[in-house]
């Protein structure tokens, strides 16, 4: 079995055994979205433009919060050392980790996002468009987030640092995503932000696992 499948399977198994680990981010997403609706869903003036941004923000933050302790347990138990001395390419291991995180956190957030968007009073077609743009963008969000957690291995209170490091990197994706959502609301459907997000996601999945592997190496001082 290749390194990719080993880590992919074990991550999914762990997620099945400890369900709360992957449920917490979703709960966080819904809570953040719910808190935004208190302000955003307003009858006196149109706030749908803000709603798009709120859904995106909730998705990004929920995605990051799930990643704080991602590698810490592995680093303490010696798993990270095992990744490094394994004969399999490190790239496959980190890619497996990114994809399992996406499946456990990114994808459920996409599936829940239309609910959040409807709560904020968006039209259901716009909500589906928003979910589609999140679906395309979340692989990049997850990959960058995993990189952040690999960089902050062994640092006390790494969660805040993780957000400081990674949120600036989310800005281009956020701008494109919100731009697409707002073009939907203005009924000016435009492919180009979606194509850009696709390009960024494909690029992130291809390049970032190498960087994650490198960050793991640094953390063990190889």
């Amino acid at each position: 079995m290749s390194g990719f499948w080993i880590i992919f399977r074990s991550d999914l198994l762990v997620a099945v055994r400890f369900k709360s680990d992957s449920l917490h981010p979703l709960l966080m997403f819904l809570l953040l979205a719910f808190l935004s609706t208190l302000v955003v869903h307003n009858r006196t003036f149109d706030t749908s433009m803000v709603a798009v941004g709120s859904v995106w923000l909730a998705a990004m933050i929920a995605n990051l919060l799930a990643l704080e302790t991602l590698f810490n347990r592995d680093a303490e138990s010696g798993m990270v050392d095992q990744f490094l001395v394994h004969s399999q390419p490190l790239f496959l291991v980190t890619l497996g980790r990114v994809l399992s995180r996406w499946l456990l956190v990114g994808l459920p957030i996409c599936l829940l996002s239309p609910v959040a968007a409807l709560l904020m009073g968006l039209h259901y077609l716009d909500s589906l468009g928003l979910a589609a743009s999140l679906f395309i963008a979340t692989p990049a969000l997850t990959a960058l987030g995993v990189l952040g957690s690999a960089l902050s291995i062994g640092i006390e209170r790494g969660g805040v640092l993780l957000a400081i490091l990674i949120l600036p990197l989310y800005v281009p994706i956020y701008l494109l995503g919100v731009g697409f959502g707002q073009s939907l609301l203005l009924s000016q459907f435009n492919w180009s932000p979606l194509l850009w997000l696709t390009a960024i996601s494909i690029g992130a999945i291809t390049v970032v696992p190498f960087a994650i592997g490198f960050a793991l190496k640094i953390s063990q001082e190889y």
């Binding site: 960089l151 701008l175 960087a211 640094i218």
Partner: peptide
């Protein structure tokens, strides 16, 4: 050494922002 290696990785990934 570890700190600057980590900084280097983050700086390289952040170049994404420059064309934007």
């Amino acid at each position: 050494h570890r700190a600057m290696m980590a900084v280097a990785i983050l700086a390289m990934i952040g170049v994404l922002n420059i064309p934007i």
